[in-house]
Design a protein around this nucleic acid. Structure first.
Lengths: 329, 329
DNA sequence: CTGTTAGCGCGTTCAT
DNA sequence: ATGAACGCGCTAACAG
């Protein structure tokens, strides 16, 4: 790999001059410029970003920490982030925690050591250690999906989305509504979506049997298992079920179809996420579209504002959602 | 951000000593080590990877160029790559071409300027410019999905996978088989999968009507459109259709269901990709699982071998596939 | 066991 | 219009 020094020597000029044509700064005669450009072309010389970063303190790279790479949510998010970032010549440095909470902190430091210009974290939980770490890094930081104090957040409206679904069920005449959730350490998905469910039920004066409230993890199988428990254990059988993610809902649907229950006649069903698959199962699944790409774009814009405009304000952006009413209700 | 110099001053030692405790190299008294570590802890100091890279010529980062971020194939691939890379402390620097061929070359240079230790490219086409560019970069390079001469490749067995599907159709008694493909500039998906189809048809002496061979792009809608053309234009109506991707097949399925055709009675259907959705449509779609995660892992291992073991050999790895026979045939 | 020195590749004054 | 000299933060001989 040639360096600026090599190019300078080959062109019989100083490194400074080469640097000038590289950055279009200062004066340099046309003749010399042509000569230098030609040599750069021939050698395939590319200036080292590291050396540059060392001087300029800028890397044009943004660290993106994800809980899981291969999910639709993540890939849409990254796609949105990349779209906005690429426009300004920024790149993504990826970090995948695989749902391991300690890794979130580890990666924040790793990205810091790589001198990224900013970090976007898709959080799955909130804990003090994490909050402290974020405060310590003192660099542009945006959190997606969880409301963490002291930093800019891009949030989904989990509470109201959940309320919207339960309200829809009630509109359709349901009163006995079951719930498949996840652990509440995930405030957004676990806590707020559940609260939306419970609040609406309470406001309407509908009781919630303990067997109706089940918990799974983030996969299809656990949705299946949860629905099985609901159907087998409930003394009063519910007529509708709200699963906090599409995957859980799809799993629940599998169980119901397998056992010969009609959807939505015997059991109405809804999820959240607007996964592609939700569209193509039969019956098609009622769900909420969180517009992940928009979230990614919003986060990227936020971080670019912080970097480019030196905007250090703390913003909370709550995104819109779209209720997609389909055949499962 | 404190530097090694700051830490050294605070600890009343030289930068070298700090560097030693940082890298566990050379001797340093326990007392001094403790003192330094304490200060590092307190200040939240993290050494700059850029400065380090500048010296060591290593970045522990691998550039990954993708044609599109938010597809199942990509995310599985990245997931597999990351799994292997993370184990060795390497990170992914992401570059998304959005199917823009010129960007492939642009990104190769960009990644080069970032001094990544290697590049993994998921190629969608083969052209001389690209081949030349890859040869020029002279750094560990692995291409996934297309057979590019002169570099290590991880390949899917497109030809035989296509053959397997057509053979399956024929086994089930089909003789009039249609085809939905993509442009042949994509050698792997466009050319080889088509060749597999044509060859098997020819070997069995079955004719292929021109209307049976349609072309789409990579989305569901174009699968729908292609199937529409097949059904509306064919003088002799086929009884089975092979679409080169699941998305095309799903689109085709949509059309058939909409028009009231029974699957597989009126028309059998198969795709390639083993997308999650293929499992949950009804009828479930027969498809080929390309084990993208394995491909990602294989590519990552190849590149790590090149980097860590200085292995400069050119390898071609052709992956296995699994035929998933489901209800659509 | 610890410090001094040099240099990685680049951008940036400041001279000329 | 061009170059010399310096320093970004770090590691790696080499001395002691």
């Amino acid at each position: 790999m040639p360096t600026i020094k090599d190019i300078a020597e080959m062109a019989n000029v100083s490194r400074t001059t080469v640097s000038r044509v590289l950055n279009n700064s200062g004066y340099v005669s046309d003749e010399v410029r042509k000569r230098i450009l030609k040599i750069i072309e021939e050698t395939g010389y590319v200036p080292s970003e590291h050396a540059k970063s060392l001087r300029t303190k800028k890397t044009k790279a943004i660290g993106v920490i994800l809980p899981k790479i291969s999910t639709e949510t993540s890939s849409r998010l990254v796609s949105g982030i990349d779209e906005v970032l690429a426009e300004k010549g920024y790149q993504i440095l990826l970090a995948n925690t695989n749902l391991n909470k300690e890794k979130e902190i580890e990666f924040i430091n790793l990205l810091k050591s790589r001198q990224v210009d900013g970090i976007i974290l898709t959080a799955t939980n909130i804990n003090d250690e994490l909050i402290n770490e974020i405060k310590r890094v003192s660099m542009p930081f945006v959190v997606i999906g969880q409301e963490i104090p002291g930093v800019s957040n891009v949030l989904y409206d989990d509470y109201h989305a959940a309320r919207a679904i339960i309200s829809l069920f009630i509109e359709k005449g349901h009163q006995k509504i079951a719930f498949i959730g996840v652990d509440e350490s995930d405030r957004a998905v676990g806590y707020w979506r559940k609260k939306g469910y419970l609040d609406v039920m309470k406001e309407h004066g509908y009781s919630v049997e303990p067997e109706w409230v089940q918990k799974g993890i983030f996969d299809i199988q656990s949705g299946y298992d949860a629905m099985k428990r609901i159907m087998e254990q409930s003394k009063i059988r519910p007529t509708a079920t709200f699963a906090v993610t599409d995957r859980l809902a799809i799993g629940a649907m599998q169980y119901l179809k397998e056992k010969g229950y009609a959807i939505p006649a015997d059991m109405a069903l809804a999820g959240i996420g607007a996964s592609e698959i939700s569209h193509y199962v039969s019956p098609s699944l009622t769900t909420v579209d969180y517009l992940n790409e928009e979230a990614g774009k919003a986060a990227a814009k936020l971080i670019l504002d912080k970097i480019l405009k030196n905007d250090s304000s703390i913003k909370k952006i709550t995104l819109n959602y779209r209720l997609l009413i389909r055949d499962s209700v």
